[in-house]
């Protein structure tokens, strides 16, 4: 009995540092977010006024916020699907294809992942430049003048333009994760399948994907969360949310409200909504993919 207690004490001692750090840097700020969202506050400490759920009520009447939520949703839907699909295709091409330049492609595809997001944003702002950007130069050169659009200045194209950058940035990263997974799939499975007459596509669907499923599950959650973070940087650098909030995402709007307009409480209400949505999404995607493994 005494020994048991001592052991418990030791365990407690071991987890104490982590627990303290976790509490200070995660639990405390998060509870503060929930708490502050109930106040009308400028974020400077004094003069906070308790307003209950008024911030939330106003939030759902705020058309800029609703637009930003819609845009975030669009990116969270479109970007992970395209990114993961492309990563899978590229990974299997590199893993099973008979390409001589395999290693070169591997490096090139991974390259965007080591660039900072700010650099990527500036780079693409110039690629999309309406008058001297490479996209429009090519369009004009091949005679598609009418498609040389102001990609970042048009409400119909701006989100797709940003989504493309996010896909470009992330494909290489997930591809490398899938490549590592594919290398660990036993070759015998493929040999047996091809003896039975399975085509390459059938092998991909019936062997590669099921064997990779655990990795795919993780990458789905990574990629949805990544969208939240990366979209903030790219939108800030490339469009500042413009034109007329057409590319505003939830986090850029939150930042603007908290630190530019000094509506700190209101911004925390946005943070709470984003937090809840992120948790729900992670939960849903986890549940959905879990069922398919059984």
């Amino acid at each position: 009995m005494k020994k048991d207690n001592r052991q418990k004490g030791f365990i407690l001692l071991c987890i104490l540092p982590t627990l303290i750090i976790f509490s200070i840097f995660i639990v405390y700020p998060v509870t503060q977010v929930f708490f502050k969202s109930l106040f009308s506050s400028s974020g400077f400490g004094s003069g906070d006024e308790y307003v209950g759920f008024a911030n939330f009520i106003e939030l759902f009447k705020d058309d800029v916020f609703l637009k930003s939520l819609k845009n975030t949703g669009f990116l969270m839907l479109v970007v992970p699907v395209i990114t993961l699909l492309l990563s899978l295709i590229f990974a299997s091409m590199l893993s099973f294809g008979e390409l001589k330049e395999k290693h070169l492609y591997r490096t090139i595809f991974f390259f965007p992942s080591i660039l900072s997001f700010v650099v990527i944003g500036i780079l693409w702002a110039f690629i999309y430049h309406p008058n001297m950007g490479i996209v429009n130069e090519i369009m004009t050169a091949i005679g598609l003048d009418q498609f040389a659009l102001t990609w970042l200045g048009n409400k119909n194209t701006v989100l797709w333009a940003i989504a493309l950058v996010m896909v470009w940035q992330a494909v290489g990263y997930y591809m490398v994760m899938y490549l590592a997974g594919m290398d660990s799939i036993p070759k015998e499975l493929y040999e047996a399948a091809s003896i039975d007459g399975a085509t390459g596509f059938q092998q991909f669907i019936k062997i590669t994907i099921p064997m990779l499923w655990e990795i795919i599950r993780i990458t789905i959650i990574f990629s949805i969360n990544g969208v939240l973070n990366i979209s903030f940087v790219l939108v800030t650098v490339m469009t500042s949310g413009g034109p007329n909030n057409s590319s505003q995402v939830a986090l850029t709007y939150m930042y603007q409200q908290a630190f530019v307009n000094a509506n700190f409480g209101y911004a925390m209400a946005i943070a709470v909504v984003v937090f809840v949505i992120a948790i729900i999404l992670a939960f849903i995607s986890n549940k959905l993919t879990e069922q398919e493994t059984e």
């Binding site: 006024e49 800029v64 200045g153 530019v260």
Partner: peptide, 21 residues
């Protein structure tokens, strides 16, 4: 005033993009 969560000046000039388009 405190408690106003819209920034009228931002809203005013944000619309310019829609007018220009």
């Amino acid at each position: 005033p405190k408690g106003v969560n819209v920034e009228p000046r931002d809203t005013l000039f944000d619309q310019a993009a829609s007018v220009m388009n």
